[in-house]
């Protein structure tokens, strides 16, 4: 009985950590610009696809992963430079729509650069399940959870302990004031895209051994990640993690104890309920100071 429950929780943890990692990327760009970057899922896809193809070509995993992160960051910077920056001064909604266009473009480009097939990546530390009190967990799930935790710690350090991180936060609160005290707000936006591209790539790399990847893998990850980010409170890193885990575990428990046919509905009902009573999410700041 307990083993059964634990297995459902593990299933939820695996999916949840994946959603959380995807959700984190939304948080950073939102923080810097109040833009929701709908191409975030595509960053994840590019990270996963680059790594998978390079590993298949015989390049060792750490090298391939590093190269993939770099490639994805370049894509992120290019996206900011050539699509978002020329629209500066435009409404936030307009920029959000630009990112949707960019996501469609990136999916198309991925079909040309790679192909339409699914790609797999070997698990980092083997495929032997870890047995815990009668339930089992794959080592790769531990990787996903561990990487999410490491990433959130790093982000906290970056935003609270480094000058540039603080400058980014300042820009998010008041762009004009930040500019007046000498913060290069243009650079801030570019760095936030590079950073969230990096996050997306890292997420894509650790997740690919579990979910596989293809040119449209970013759609689902982006959508679930967005739900996670909204549930946790947009712009809050910890919120994105908690939001992702809540969605993942709710889905798993719903398919375990109710019916797998309702699992997506259950997750959405939870999101709706939370947003109904806490409109800025579980960890979101009160919205009043953003006029």
């Amino acid at each position: 009985m307990f083993a059964e429950f634990l297995q459902y929780v593990f299933a939820g943890l695996t999916s949840g950590a994946i959603y959380a990692l995807a959700g984190l990327g939304f948080a950073i760009i939102y923080n810097a610009s109040h833009v929701i970057n709908f191409a975030q899922g595509e960053f994840i896809m590019i990270g996963g696809m680059s790594t998978a193809t390079m590993v298949a070509a015989g390049i060792p995993l750490p090298v391939a992963a590093a190269a993939a992160v770099l490639v994805t960051m370049l894509v992120g910077v290019a996206l900011e430079k050539f699509a978002v920056e020329p629209a500066k001064g435009a409404d936030v909604t307009a920029i959000v729509i630009i990112t949707i266009g960019a996501s469609i473009f990136l999916r198309g480009a991925a079909q040309v650069v790679w192909d339409k097939e699914f790609h797999a990546l070997p698990a980092f530390s083997g495929e032997t399940p870890i047995a815990v009190l009668g339930a089992t967990l794959m080592p790769q799930s531990v990787w996903v959870v561990g990487v999410s935790m490491a990433v959130i710690a790093l982000l906290w350090w970056f935003f609270n302990r480094t000058l540039f991180g603080k400058a980014m936060l300042a820009t998010s609160f008041n762009r004009l004031a930040a500019q007046l005290v000498g913060i290069g707000v243009k650079k801030v936006l570019m760095v936030s895209f590079a950073l969230s591209a990096m996050l997306g790539a890292v997420g894509g790399i650790v997740v690919t051994p579990i979910t596989f990847t293809n040119y449209e893998a970013g759609i689902m990850l982006g959508l679930k990640g967005f739900s996670a980010a909204v549930l946790g409170g947009l712009g809050n890193g910890l919120g994105a993690i908690v939001g992702g885990l809540v969605v993942g575990i709710a889905e798993a428990l719903a398919s375990g104890y109710l019916s797998s046919a309702y699992k997506d509905a259950i997750a959405f009902v939870i999101i709706l309920l939370v947003l109904f009573f806490m409109p800025s999410g579980l960890f979101g700041k009160k919205g009043t100071d953003r006029v």
């Binding site: 297995q7 299933a11 695996t14 979910t211 893998a217 759609i219 798993a252 428990l253 375990g256 797998s260």
Partner: peptide
Amino acid sequence: YSPKDPDVTAQLTK
């Protein structure tokens, strides 16, 4: 399960 679910161990446990 949904076509893009990353994990179906819950359904399989059942």
